[in-house]
Design a protein around this nucleic acid. Structure first.
Lengths: 345, 345
DNA sequence: CTGTTAGCGCATTCAC
DNA sequence: GTGAATGCGCTAACAG
């Protein structure tokens, strides 16, 4: 009634367990084809599956990578998890995904669990206040920080995979400038992460280069109710930011949101105010989550090449030799209908 | 350099490995407090973590449950995964989530992998064409089908957890009828699943009971490009269905979509046609995914109590005695702004 | 109350 | 080419 074991297979095939093991691990070097067929047959007949725990105990590693995200309910991270899973599948590797719910204690606990499970490496898309414990993990397995740049060079063993955040906002500015906008706002929560700081930097540089006005609208997260599960604060913040964008001293005719979630919020907030996009204000997001395209109007945005990034992250762990430690990916401008020429005064 | 083992802890604490093991498994029944403190101390000092693989090999079970979903990129399943994770965490249990990408072969393979990992049970939200292999798994561990009713009584060992689908559409009809609608459409892909059949049945019964016209608009999935990853066909189908709803013989003044994703598609399609919601047509979805509320106008919908359902599913696996095998959950009507009185003729 | 012992299922030397 | 022996780290009897 219990699961068949390797011994059972061996007995049925009339060989020894080690031969079955060899077969299982593709070492047919000098194994009679007939023996192979016998083993093959026995395995199928018994419905045998090797016991992962035992194999792992013996070899020391599981064919798993760990993934940490703030919450799978967040559209972006759901898509990321999906991409990582697809990438890992190419290496016949599984993914253990955990939501941290942005709880540092849980984050640490979950990391430790991942290690205890013998994962080959950890990919984290969860924003960490302290990268200390992350860095501590690097002595045990590769750690790749996804879409997070490390805050200093002391943690150089953490591999980072990220879009070029500065380029993203710069491209947004350029797109808007080419449309004729002369005053643009960047709407963002407080720049606690390097990520956001990069986007702000890209924005300011591009705006200066284009010789136009750039306004930073910083929305405080306390404006919105905390929602660790759904991860929807940015949407709420966007809604509440609409008014502030319009009231900004430089009278912006276009707004760049720190991401699509916030852009969608801004869009809704603007409509409540009776304004139209893009007629009254052009709007552009970052990420290209699915609902950016399903929004009304469809959102112009800077797409993160998630699948390529996930592939790279998995590769760093499963085939470490093949690529540089850190990698920056170019965002792609997806022009839809939320951006247009500024209203004529 | 390698991980500390239970033996190391034992040595440092000056006790035997079994005492450490007892301590680890909360069997302090008759253990000197002093010994406990010593062990505790040694564990901390060494940074010891028990090796899961070894424990699992010994005990035969891992503290993991498996979760199968079509794709985590799909908003609904991302939220589900999140809810299952939260539910399992209450039992100090981890979740191994796999996307099947609606590929039956992968689905089977992934199930087998899950078994090989020694999961305590499997929760599947992946729509299965054949429940055969699912039923086969029930001999090895509990299997709960999430939001899927089994197709016949031959698989009675599969536990099902689902919303009351018939009630959902019936409630939608009642809500619409109370608003004054006399002709309502139900928009759905072909009713291949019991799930959809239930929704159709609920719709037809409610419509008959209310003495109003009910029209079934069946949108073929071939109308939309396949997209196994993003799982966005329903959205596309909704877009393309807008026209057909309007053209329906009974001239419906309201439409019920099989779920929110499709409702959002219908909303976009309708706008392209120059129609307004709810002025020209009332629209109602099912699920209450986040973007139902972030849509313009905010979508009236029937919420699935995902967290409660996830809790129930996990409970069936981790604390089997505590509840009946199958359970039906009542949907909750969330009235927002996409439904209103029908236009006056 | 604590230590000793014997595997869990498999992969890996080694002899044969 | 293949089989027997050993141990991965831990738990569960049982002995002390």
């Amino acid at each position: 009634m219990s699961e068949p074991k390797i011994k059972d297979v061996a007995r049925l095939a009339g060989v020894s367990p080690s031969s079955v093991s060899n077969f299982l691990n593709s070492r047919f070097q000098q194994m009679r084809p007939e023996t192979q067929r016998n083993i093959q047959e026995a395995i199928k007949q018994l419905g045998y599956r090797p016991n992962n725990a035992a194999r792992q105990l013996k070899t020391g590693v599981a064919s798993m990578v760990g993934l940490l995200v703030p919450s799978l309910a967040n559209q972006f991270f759901g898509a990321l998890a999906c991409a990582v899973e697809a990438a890992a599948a190419k290496y016949h590797c599984h993914v253990m995904t955990f939501s941290t719910f942005r709880n540092p204690a849980r984050e640490r606990a979950v990391m430790a669990d991942l290690m205890a499970h013998g994962v080959k490496g950890i990919i984290t898309g969860s924003a960490l206040n302290d990268t200390e414990h992350l860095a501590a993990m690097t002595s045990r397995c590769p750690v790749v920080a996804f879409d997070i740049r490390r805050s200093d060079e002391s943690h150089e063993r953490i591999i980072t995979i990220s879009v070029d955040n500065a380029a993203a906002t710069a491209m947004a500015v350029d797109h808007l400038a080419s449309l004729g906008h002369r005053s643009i706002a960047l709407v963002t929560p407080p720049p606690q992460t390097l990520n956001r700081q990069d986007r702000i930097r890209g924005f300011e540089q591009a705006v200066a280069r284009a010789g136009i006005a750039g306004e930073l609208v910083i929305v405080d997260s306390t404006d919105a109710p905390a929602d660790p599960h759904g991860d929807t604060q940015l949407f709420e913040m966007g809604c509440s930011a609409a008014e502030r964008i319009l009231a900004a001293p430089s009278r912006p005719t276009a707004a760049i949101a720190i991401n699509d979630m916030m852009a969608i919020g801004i869009g809704i907030g603007l409509k409540k105010l009776g304004l139209k996009i893009p007629e009254d204000l052009s709007l552009i997001g970052i990420d290209d989550i699915f609902f950016a395209g399903a929004h009304d109007p469809p959102l112009t945005t800077l797409r993160q090449p998630i699948q390529a990034m996930a592939d790279a992250a998995v590769q760093r762990i499963l085939a470490p030799a093949s690529a540089p430690a850190d990698e920056l990916f170019a965002p792609e401008l997806i022009v839809r209908s939320s951006t247009a020429a500024p209203p004529k005064q």
